[in-house]
Design a protein around this nucleic acid. Structure first.
Lengths: 199, 199
DNA sequence: GTCTATATCCAGATAGAC
DNA sequence: GTCTATCTGGATATAGAC
C-alpha cells in the first residue's frame, strides 16, 4: 500500500520534532517536574501512549532538548567570536542580542529558560546535569577569550576575564528567570547597564 | 505529671524550627519538587507522620520559608537604606556583602537560593508565587531609591534606576543559581565587576 | 503508527495506637 | 508528642487492540 519507508520515516521525524517543540515550550515555562507527559501529548494533539513510541521517557525528551540548547548556544558563540568585528563590538552585539531575544520571547530565549530550569531543578536527570556542567564552560570560555582580546588592545575594562564572563552569563540567566516569573510583563533592561561592566 | 504547658510549647517551637531549618537546607539545594517529606523527616531525625503534626503540607513549609526569606531580605534592605552612609557606600556594602554571603554559604545565601528556586520552580504553590511577586518589588524599590539618591548627587552612574535595581537583583540571583550547580567549587566574582554597573 | 486501557509505582497525607 | 501502618491519588510507563 501507499506507505513506503521514506514516508514512514518522514512521519517519524515530524512527530519527533513536534513533540520536542511542544516540550520545549512547556518545560521552559513550567519546568520538568510539573510538566506531565499528558500535557505534552495533549498540546501536541496526540495520545499519551504515542509519546512513548518516540521517547523512552520524559527525561529523555528533556536531555535531548538540553543537548540541542547548548549546541545552538555554543555554535552562536563560535560564530560571534569569528565575526570580523572588534572585541568591543562583539560584546556589544552579544548583550543586545540576548536581551532582545529575551524580550521578544524568541526560541533562543526559551532555550535560555530551559537551561536556567535545568540548572536549578533537581528532578533533572544526572545526564543533563553533566551536559550542563561541561557545556556551560564552553560558551563562558568563548566570551572570556573575547574579553581578553579587548583588554589587550585596551577597549575592554580590566579585570579577571573569566570572572567577567561568568557574570556575563549569570546576569543573562538571572534575567531569563525573571522573565519566567513576570511573563509577558517582562521588560528587558537597557543593554547599557550590563555593558558598563565590560566597556 | 512533669510536663506543663510551657514545656510542651517549648518542644513545639523547637521542633517547628528544626523542621524549618532542615527544610531550608533541602529545598535550597534540591528544590521543592524533589524534596520528599520523608527526606525532611529523616534529616530532622523524626518520623514522617510527625512532620504533619506541625505543618499541614509540604507546601506550607515552603511558604513559611519564603515568607521568612523576604522578611529577612526586606528588613536588611531597610536597615541598609537607613544607615548613615552615602548612596555609593550603601551599594558598595550591599554588593560585597551579598557576594560574600554566597561564597561563605551563609544562611542568608540559602535564602537566596530558596528564592531563586521559588521563582523558577513551577510546583511552587500559587500563594508562594504571589508573595514573591509582591515582595520582590520591595527590595528592588529600596535599591532603586538608593541609586536615585546617588544619581542626584552625581556619585552613581546615570540610567533608569528601576532597571538598574532590577539588574542588581537578577545578577545576584543568577550567581546564587550557579552556586547551586557548582556547590563548594563556586567562587564568587570580584565585587568590582558588578559595582562597575553602578559606580 | 496510533489509540485505549491498565499496571505499577511512589510520595503525600491520614488514622490510630502508644 | 511521637510513632507505625495505611490509604489514596496521580503520574509514568506498558500491553495489546486496531
Amino acid at each position: 500500500m501507499g506507505r513506503n519507508k521514506e514516508t514512514n520515516q518522514k512521519i517519524r521525524d515530524e512527530r519527533r520534532e513536534q513533540i520536542l517543540s511542544e516540550s520545549l515550550l512547556l518545560f521552559s515555562t513550567r519546568g520538568l517536574a510539573s510538566t506531565k507527559i499528558s500535557d505534552i501529548a495533549s498540546t501536541a494533539g496526540i495520545s499519551q501512549g504515542l509519546v512513548y513510541h518516540y521517547f523512552r521517557s520524559k527525561e529523555d525528551i528533556f536531555i535531548e532538548l538540553i543537548r540541542g540548547a547548548f549546541e545552538r548556544l555554543n555554535s552562536s558563540c563560535e560564530i560571534l567570536s569569528r565575526m570580523p568585528l572588534s572585541p568591543r563590538e562583539k560584546i556589544d552585539i552579544a548583550v543586545r542580542g540576548l536581551l532582545q531575544d529575551l524580550e521578544n520571547n524568541q526560541e533562543n530565549a526559551r532555550y535560555h529558560l530551559l537551561m536556567a530550569q535545568a540548572m536549578i531543578s533537581e528532578t533533572v536527570p544526572e545526564e543533563a546535569k553533566a551536559i550542563i556542567r561541561r557545556e556551560i564552560a564552553v560558551s563562558q570560555e568563548i566570551i572570556a577569550a573575547i574579553l581578553r582580546d579587548g583588554q589587550k588592545e585596551g577597549s575592554i575594562k580590566e579585570g579577571d576575564a573569566d570572572e567577567m564572563a561568568l557574570v556575563f552569563w549569570t546576569s543573562i540567566n538571572g534575567l531569563a528567570i525573571l522573565k519566567v516569573v513576570n511573563g509577558a510583563e517582562f521588560k528587558a533592561p537597557a543593554p547599557e547597564i550590563l555593558l558598563s561592566m565590560f566597556l
